[in-house]
Write a protein that binds this DNA or RNA. Structure first.
Length: 92
DNA sequence: CAAACTATTCAGC
DNA sequence: GCTGAATAGTTTG
């Protein structure tokens, strides 16, 4: 567990539901604007992949990067989150 | 401490 | 749109 990793986790966990951010964005928020490479590495080897919404972290252009469940599932999750968000906003 | 690896991003064609 | 190269931190020896 490295300090930078902690920041990254914090940032990733701070991503609102239905929102997707890029590795670059996370890295910037983590304090290392040019360390998106490391962000991916950390998330890949992160000690708790389950508590980390890695599916909200994507490469760019809505293209999901990698995930334990598989990139395909992750992509679906992105769309699902969008629906969830609508559901929450529309849960009148 | 150094080398290798990586879930990426940018630039060129 | 695809391929190649660069960057920055983690991990392992």
């Amino acid at each position: 567990m490295t300090p930078f990793a902690k920041k990254v986790y914090r940032v990733v966990l701070s991503i609102p539901l239905g929102q997707v951010r890029t590795y670059k964005w996370v890295a910037q928020k983590a304090g290392r604007p040019g360390a998106w490479r490391a962000v991916g590495t950390i998330l890949n080897k992160n000690p708790f992949p389950v508590i980390i919404p890695c599916h909200r972290v994507i490469k760019s252009n809505n293209i999901s990067g990698g995930y334990v469940f598989g990139k395909k599932r992750k992509k679906e999750l992105l769309g699902l989150e969008g629906r969830i968000k609508e559901c929450l906003a529309n849960r009148k």
